[in-house]
Amino acid sequence: MANRTDRIAPSDILLFSTQRNEGVRLPYFLQYYRDMGVNHFFFVDNDSTDGSLDYLARQDDVSVWTTRASYKRARFGVDWLNWLQMRYAHGHWTLVVDPDELFLYPFCDTRPLRALTDWLDASSIKSFSAMLLDMYPKGRIDAEPYRPGQNPIEIASWFDAGNYTIKKNPKFGNLWIQGGPRARMFFADQPERAPALNKIPLVKWDRRYAYVSSTHNLLPRGLNLVYDEWGGEKASGVLLHTKFLDTFSIKAQEELERKQHYAGSKEYLAYAAGIRDNPDLWCKWSEKYINWRQLEILGLMSKGNWA
């Protein structure tokens, strides 16, 4: 639709995303990552009908492709992005995030993203993990409508601080993290089905690399070793996941009808059921988001040896 990749400089930081009818989120999303220091955006638009495709095509720093093909058949968008990354991202630091994910890294309030990538380069680190942290409002999810351009954290400002469980995935060497409000509310009776929260969104891309399932794990396996096994902490960030806004119920219904999601859309089935019964994810022990330092103290992310 719009290919502006000729404007990419060799040291640019690139962002890749798939989107479908996320028009309401895009203005804030683009602004957030531009401020962080992302130089160019790549979108794969999956058959949007809300005008978001045109909106994206008008942005100077966005290249956008469109497809009507099945999200599911493309392994939930991974194949589309892998292809684009192979083609355009070789040698660049790349961030792969969804439109409802806001990336945080240590010192993100005082240092641009390039400070992080330069440091990672100097430390010979090729991949950087950022766990998905589900954010939710206090009260009903649809209580406060989200306006375009608004910081979604103003509404969904709460999270679960300490109910995450970790296992190692022997096949790819990545950690498999589950927990948070979705496990607690929607998957209490089938914990093993709860969605994976481990993500490795920031990678110094090489055309030989590939994401396997979403950004949960990569090949070659070495890229998944974003954790220290000898007691220390590697540096890591967080993806604030702002799925639970008023837009969610509609989305859940739609996704259920399209049946384009993982494991027979089990996740969305569980949501639909959960949403009907009790839409309040908030509990007495929910933590209100302040900044990355708070998340660091809580042990959700780490500065590692970056100081």
């Binding site: 993990s129 766990m131 950690l175 974003v226 220290d228």
Partner: peptide
């Protein structure tokens, strides 16, 4: 102090913490 702490965090980490970038092998938890 600040940099010594950073080294300590990278090499020894926070006792009893299991998270995305700290998952010690058995016996190495400090």
């Amino acid at each position: 102090r600040i940099f010594a702490k950073a080294v300590d965090r990278r090499t020894r980490g926070r006792a009893g913490l299991y998270m995305q970038s700290r998952y010690p092998n058995p016996g190495w938890e400090n």
